[in-house]
C-alpha cells in the first residue's frame, strides 16, 4: 500500500545528489519544488573529503539522519542517482 499519492517516482527513495558546490548529499528524496529539491534524513559530505570511503561507510552502516528536512537549492542541484 502506497500512501503518498501525487509524488514523483523518486519519492521516498534514498538518493545521492551531486551539488554544484562540490558537496555530496545522501538522503531520501521527498519532492522537487521550484526552489529546489526537498530531502529527508540527509547527510552531507563537504568537498575535499574521501568520498569513496564515506560512501562505503554509508553503505555498511546506513545514512545518518543529520538533517531531518533539507532543501537543496535549484542552483546547487546538479544530478541525482539512486543510492544503493
Amino acid at each position: 500500500m502506497v500512501l503518498h499519492p501525487g509524488h514523483d517516482d523518486l519519492h521516498g527513495i534514498t538518493v545521492l545528489v551531486e551539488g554544484a558546490s562540490g558537496r555530496t548529499y545522501v538522503g531520501r528524496w521527498h519532492e522537487r519544488q521550484e526552489r529546489g529539491v526537498v530531502m529527508r534524513d540527509t547527510t552531507i559530505l563537504e568537498p575535499g573529503n574521501d568520498r569513496d570511503a564515506w560512501l562505503a561507510q554509508l553503505r555498511k552502516f546506513g545514512v545518518p539522519p543529520d538533517h531531518k528536512t533539507l532543501v537543496i537549492p535549484a542552483d546547487e542541484f546538479l544530478d541525482v542517482v539512486r543510492f544503493s
Binding site: 527513495i13 534514498t14 552502516f61 546506513g62 545514512v63 539512486r82 544503493s84
Partner: peptide, 10 residues
C-alpha cells in the same frame, strides 16, 4: 547482518 532501507527500496 543488516538490511538497510536503501537496500529494500525499489
Amino acid at each position: 547482518a543488516f538490511i538497510h532501507r536503501h537496500e529494500i527500496e525499489g
